[in-house]
């Protein structure tokens, strides 16, 4: 009888027997549980699936740990436990973080702008200060920069427009050059530049 049960158990471990085939009773149960465990261990060993560290009898430790677990009472239900509100509030908190990050970014931008402000006494010195003989420092304002000198609005706009026109035309001419370049190189009769 007992031998029959052990064989059935072995078959169950190997997945060849269904649980119903095992007629369990109280006397054999404890013995079978031990066997169940060792059969699995043997099977794992045969299949080379043993974990690197063998810790026999984890199950008893788990049950012991469960015994020692302090009982946690269900927390009192409040406003936040309502599903919708519970989700909304974290968003609000995140919003606060974004606001903080954004204000830092704004501070950075302000700081950078402060650094990049042209000096008031050199209102047109958007170009880096570089002394060229016979030329005032700075001079023209870049196309994108706001004007700081109290010029009549039209002058500033007019100047920007002129600068833009020159830059655009330069780009265009560079493209067109390519089409003429071959012709030009066939006629190298262009005056050689005089060197100083």
């Amino acid at each position: 009888m007992k031998q029959q049960k052990l064989e059935n158990l072995s078959a169950l471990v190997d997945g060849e027997q269904s649980l119903e085939g095992l007629a369990l009773d109280d006397q054999t149960e404890r013995e079978l549980v031990d066997k169940w465990r060792s059969y699995h261990l043997i099977r794992d060993g045969l299949r080379k699936e043993l974990p690197p560290q063998l810790d026999f009898d984890i199950s008893s430790k788990v049950s012991a740990a469960l015994e020692n677990e302090p009982t946690i009472l269900a927390p009192r239900k409040g406003l936040r436990d309502l599903p919708v509100i519970g989700h909304v509030i974290p968003f609000v908190r995140q919003g606060g973080q974004f606001a903080l990050a954004a204000s830092v970014a704004v501070a950075m931008i302000l700081g950078v702008q402060q650094f990049n402000q042209p000096k008031p006494e050199q209102p047109f010195s958007s170009a880096p200060a570089l002394a060229i003989p016979g030329m005032q420092q700075g001079g023209l304002s870049p196309v994108s920069l706001e004007q700081t000198r109290p010029l009549p609005q039209t002058d500033a706009l007019e100047q920007k427009r002129r600068i833009n026109a020159y830059l655009t035309d330069h780009e265009r001419q560079m493209r067109l050059k390519a089409s003429q370049h071959s012709e030009v190189s066939e006629h190298p009769a262009q005056p050689e530049p005089q060197q100083k």
């Binding site: 047109f124 170009a127 005032q136 023209l140 870049p142 600068i163």
Partner: peptide, 8 residues
């Protein structure tokens, strides 16, 4: 017009 230069 005025003399001057810029970098773009």
């Amino acid at each position: 017009s005025e003399n001057g230069w810029l970098k773009y």
